[in-house]
């Protein structure tokens, strides 16, 4: 449902920040926001997936990337130059950070945010200390 508030918000935000959604239109899939934070022993990657249910998220690791695909519960409609475009899926591929221990990657989904914990590899060739 498009209300006055939503219509006005969409017009303002879309017209002034349209450059960021070019990929959405090219791929016909919403590219969700994500953020990667480095902690001492791990990386934490968060992906914003509003309007998605846990069962409709597919998370894979492939070719050095974390790939997330998700289906929206309700289609997201955007007006683009007089045309209404319907998006039903989200997809994002994020390059794995350095020293990622891909065997120990874990994920949880809460309040529409997917949090992927990527531990850093903590083993290697031992160097003797003299």
């Amino acid at each position: 449902m498009t209300t006055d508030f939503i219509a006005s918000f969409e017009k303002r935000v879309s017209s002034l920040h349209e450059h960021n959604t070019a990929d959405d239109f090219a791929l016909r899939e919403i590219v969700p926001l994500s953020y990667l934070i480095e902690k001492n022993s791990k990386w934490v990657l968060q992906i914003d997936l509003p309007g998605v249910e846990r069962k409709n998220i597919v998370l894979t690791i492939t070719h050095g990337h974390v790939v997330v695909k998700a289906k929206l519960e309700e289609a997201f409609k955007v007006s683009n130059h007089g045309q209404v475009i319907k998006f039903e899926n989200m997809k994002k591929a994020v390059e794995l950070p350095p020293y990622a221990d891909i065997k120990k990657i874990s994920a949880k989904f809460k309040n529409g945010i997917l949090t992927i914990t990527i531990p850093k590899i903590d083993s290697g060739k031992r160097i003797p200390i003299k």
Partner: peptide
Amino acid sequence: TEFKKQVNYLRLQGRQLMEDTL
């Protein structure tokens, strides 16, 4: 009431502005 109904929509629609802000 209207705002509550549009929470998911605002999260999706606000992506572009959030990205520029970040």
